[in-house]
Amino acid sequence: MALTGVSLIAFLVVHVGINACIWAGDGGDMFNKASHFMGSTVVIRILEVGLFAGIILHIVQGLVLEVQNRSRRQTAYAVSLGNRGSKWYRRSMGLLGTLLLLFLVMHLSHFWVPSRFSTLETITIDGKEYPNQYADIIRVFHDPLVVVLYLLGCASLLYHLLHGFQSAFRTLGVGNNRYLALIKITGFWFSIIVSIGFAMMPISVYLEWIS
């Protein structure tokens, strides 16, 4: 759970970095080049297989963990400890993960499927042809319902990371006195920055901050 979680966290850095190319102010040229690089390089395609394997493994591990842990208490308490003992999102990783999975299905069908199966229009940048991924995001994020669903996805990601980041490191044994403060602070700001970074993309397109 922790190992797959950390590798997925590493992927988020790459993803949010590439997304940030839309703000380069060059009409999407840098973004199109970057997404073409991600879609056409052999090494990245191999890593992509690893990424999908990581996501599936993370889901399977999560399901097994949730089912096993739920079976460890057969009679529920009449009065539960609830938020007095721990934050709600620390106890709701299964729910948040399910929301993220639903989001991923929508997200992949929006962007990954068209780009992988070459149904995108092309654009010529510096005399070379690229799939116009940029035009695709402008089209998709024109729908306010899609924007709202993406923002909900980002909110789920935020809370999933707020717990997941530090929990993963604690499980890997890095949560002793020396590193705990570092992990807490890094985890908090990482979650905030990455989630806002992702959320800014549909917002920027919908409010026409970028064209």
Binding site: L65, R72, G85, S86, R90, R91, Q166, T171
Partner: peptide, 13 residues
């Protein structure tokens, strides 16, 4: 016993 998911309820009580 169940597996730890670091919810931190244990520490608080």
């Amino acid at each position: 016993f169940g597996a730890c998911t670091n919810t931190q309820a244990c520490e608080s009580v």
